[in-house]
Write a protein that binds this DNA or RNA. Structure first.
Lengths: 166, 166
DNA sequence: CACGAGTGCTTCAAATTCGAAGCACATCCG
DNA sequence: CGGATGTGCTTCGAATTTGAAGCACTCGTG
């Protein structure tokens, strides 16, 4: 017998909806700023940021990039193609694994990232952190970090047969 | 002279990244469940939920729906068309304003919503609230609700000339 | 070594998404 | 009333995104 379906109480619902709406609105706001200043989509910015800021070497394998950005592989191939065409990254076969492709940010990529970053943080500051105190920000980070780790660890569901899209 | 660009401290960065990643992962998880059980995309579910749960009448104007779901108008037209074709909603000209279109959820729409909802809440419970206590959930809701209100009120930026996409 | 399963990426076709332009109705002022 | 402006939605073309299929390489086992 299956467990009783755990329904959400009103507080949880509030938190869930607020979370999704804030993330959506924030993404929209950021997207607009990125487009204006650097002609970048949010995904492209995420990729550059991950390469230029998170990675100490400036390189990552395609798969790791895709996972980090919560993105499909084929979509990443497409975007990596665009970024490469714009000379913001290079793609080279990995030395240790012939199948893998290493994506590396170029100087131009770093330059664009630097150009875009101030406005980006400005939007985040104003839109997200304006209503939050320093303490609030810490509380938020402390609440969400475990959730992120939990979700990373627990894949949503075992693969199931796909139906045709509606 | 412009203000000094407010850069983000590490705590804020943590909070920002965690927020976006959690929202992204959660959306993916939910999307998969919705596809399996009801052959609905997340957007379609949001639309049905808004009509069937939030609205007391089961109806909304297109524009209000688009705003509520953070969505472009043309995208909403497309999705509303799909939902209508599947007999989950109806579209009728509004009585008081000939320009406006009222979207109304059908019985079939409500039925599908009911069918999908348990699994949906189950995913949210497990993925989002598993690592959070009751108190945490409340804290999260209380932190994010003001942010959402603030972002709703403050449009990202006045319209600026659009450039060609990269 | 040879085979079969697995992994990493790309290609492909189809679906979704967006912004700009267009259309119809509404509202505002003179 | 009449024209100008604004609003609500749809249409259109182009860009993006996705899952499935395909290809190449790797790994484990015999």
């Amino acid at each position: 017998m299956p467990d009783t379906p755990p329904s959400l109480d009103s507080v949880q619902l509030r938190a869930y909806f607020a979370l999704m709406e804030v993330a959506g609105l924030l993404r929209h706001a950021v997207e607009q700023q990125l487009r204006e200043v650097g002609d970048l989509s949010y995904v492209q910015f995420q990729l550059l940021a991950r390469l230029g800021l998170d990675s100490s070497t400036g390189s990552e394998r395609m798969t790791d990039l895709a996972d980090g950005v919560v993105y499909s592989r084929s979509g990443l191939t497409y975007q990596a193609g665009l970024l490469e065409k714009a000379d913001l990254v290079t793609r080279t076969p990995s030395p240790d694994d012939e199948r893998a492709v290493t994506v590396t940010i170029t100087d131009a990529g770093r330059a664009l990232l630097a150009k875009v970053l101030p406005g980006h943080t400005e939007v985040i500051s104003r839109q997200l952190f304006q209503p939050l105190s320093r303490t609030d920000a810490k509380a938020l980070a402390d609440l969400l970090s475990p959730v992120r780790d939990h979700m990373r660890a627990a894949p949503p569901r075992s693969a199931a047969p796909r139906r045709r899209r509606r």
